[in-house]
């Protein structure tokens, strides 16, 4: 500590020092300007989020009054964006109801009407395209999905030598997606529907990686919805328009089924291959099918996910 630090001896050193600190400041200032300018695209972040939405509580913690306000906010947002006043409800599961879906592989002709009815019913993004149902064309005798053709454009279906396997969310009893979500944004309800709180999802896509059925979809871009095809009958956990950067998936048309109706994919099926109902009701169609049909399949049963979606055959 005895020796003082070396002091530059030339007379210009003070000026040199101040010139350098001036240059340092200009470089820093210029750097800060570039930093601010680099964020310039953020000016276009118009409806990314609002204070109200940013601070919104988790679905399960919302009081009824808060829920009313949230639904009103969503209605207002949809109206502003699409010019249509929707009716957004928060439908809760019914007691004594557990939904099960059955699909008759003998009947399915692979016409993809279910795919598009679902898109229309659930206000799915047309651009970029998001679809909850994927119909696989498989050669007779094999359930190996790697042999499947997804984008068949046959003139006429069904084609000889093939059968068709529509796949959508299997509403598993032991869902892989729910377990992995770091923020509880997706969960299984008492009626068996696995739902997503679109206002809570952080968009990490871990659930998408976990799902063995490739049933989950992510909003990579802002959903493109034509206003003229908006379905105004909406529900919070169901078909209200989604935001950029969140997950979504089939929810058995919660806005219909929790109001007692059949899902849209079922009603549009021209061959009646799709069956839906309450498995806890012994008189329901699905109870009959699971009781009477000898062969039915849960897709990838070995995963232990125990789907509520059953594929069956007539003969």
């Amino acid at each position: 500590m005895a020796t003082p630090p070396p002091v530059p001896s030339d007379k210009t050193s003070d000026r040199a020092l101040s010139r350098r600190s001036f240059l340092r400041s200009t470089a820093a200032l210029s750097g800060l300007t570039a930093l601010a300018a680099s964020l310039s695209p953020l000016r276009e972040l118009d409806d990314f989020t609002s204070t109200e939405q940013f601070l919104q509580k988790y679905y399960k913690e919302l009081t009824p009054e808060e829920m009313t306000r949230v639904l009103a906010r969503i209605e207002k947002e949809v109206e502003r964006q699409y010019g249509i006043r929707p009716h957004v409800r928060d439908l809760r599961p019914m007691d004594g109801v557990e939904f099960v879906y059955c699909l008759n592989l003998t009947r399915c002709i692979g016409c993809r009407k279910c795919v598009h009815a679902c898109v229309a019913e659930n206000n799915l993004s047309r651009d970029p395209e998001i679809q909850y149902i994927r119909v696989l064309k498989l050669p007779h005798g094999s359930l190996d999905v790697e042999k499947a053709e997804h984008k068949y454009t046959a003139d006429q279906v069904p084609e000889k030598g093939f059968f068709y396997l529509p796949v959508q969310c299997q509403q598993c009893r032991n869902p892989a997606c729910v377990k992995v979500c770091p923020v509880h944004a997706t969960w299984q309800e008492s009626d068996g529907i696995t739902v997503i709180d679109y206002d809570w999802c952080i968009g990490c896509r871990y659930c998408e990686a976990a799902c063995p059925y490739w049933a989950r979809r992510f909003n990579f871009a802002k959903p493109g919805l034509p206003a003229e095809r908006i379905n105004p009958d909406m529900s919070y956990l169901g078909n209200r328009p989604r935001k950029l950067g969140v997950m979504e998936k089939c929810h058995f048309c919660i806005q219909r089924t929790r109001a007692g109706r059949y899902p849209a994919c079922l009603e549009v099926c021209p061959v009646g291959a799709r069956k839906f109902g309450n498995i806890l009701d012994p008189n329901s169609e699905v109870s009959y099918i699971l009781r009477e049909k000898r062969v039915f399949i849960q897709l990838k049963e070995e995963m232990g996910t125990s789907p509520r979606f059953f594929y069956y055959f007539d003969k």
Partner: peptide, 26 residues
């Protein structure tokens, strides 16, 4: 039940896009 023309195939964000005007392949 007579056969019918299927609805258009998926054309998702990634991968080759299917041109709806393309001739059907068998």
């Amino acid at each position: 039940i007579p056969s019918r023309t299927p609805a258009p195939p998926p054309s998702p964000l990634r991968g080759p896009r299917t041109d709806p005007s393309r001739e059907p392949t068998h």
